[in-house]
């Protein structure tokens, strides 16, 4: 079980959360300026790194917050966690 440090609830089992994917993907902010290629990239493409990965987890069975998590995909180790707007660095 991965223990995800929810910034609101404290460390919780990952089973309480739903994985919500790559947090480096930024939805085009200005739809009028966004090209088809921008949407295509946003919806379909992923860096999919082995190692630290910035991602979202939804605390579905908890406080219902989306939590931003920096997690190593090769070890599952959580390196940092925060709110969606936070900039995360390894080591919390």
């Amino acid at each position: 079980m991965i223990r995800i440090p929810c910034p609101h609830c404290g460390p919780r089992d990952h089973a309480e959360f739903s994985y919500a994917g790559d947090a480096t993907k930024i939805r085009p902010a200005d739809p009028d300026a966004a090209t088809a290629a921008d949407w295509h990239d946003y919806v379909y493409f992923r860096d999919n790194p082995r190692g630290p990965h910035m991602e979202y987890w939804h605390h579905t069975q908890g406080c219902r917050a989306y939590v931003k998590v920096l997690r190593d995909t090769s070890t599952h180790e959580v390196l940092a966690a925060g709110m969606p707007g936070d900039t995360l660095e390894a080591g919390r």
Partner: peptide, 13 residues
């Protein structure tokens, strides 16, 4: 297991 992983290692749930 529903999260990105390269660990070849799953979880108990």
């Amino acid at each position: 297991d529903f999260y990105n992983s390269y660990a070849q290692r799953g979880n108990l749930p």
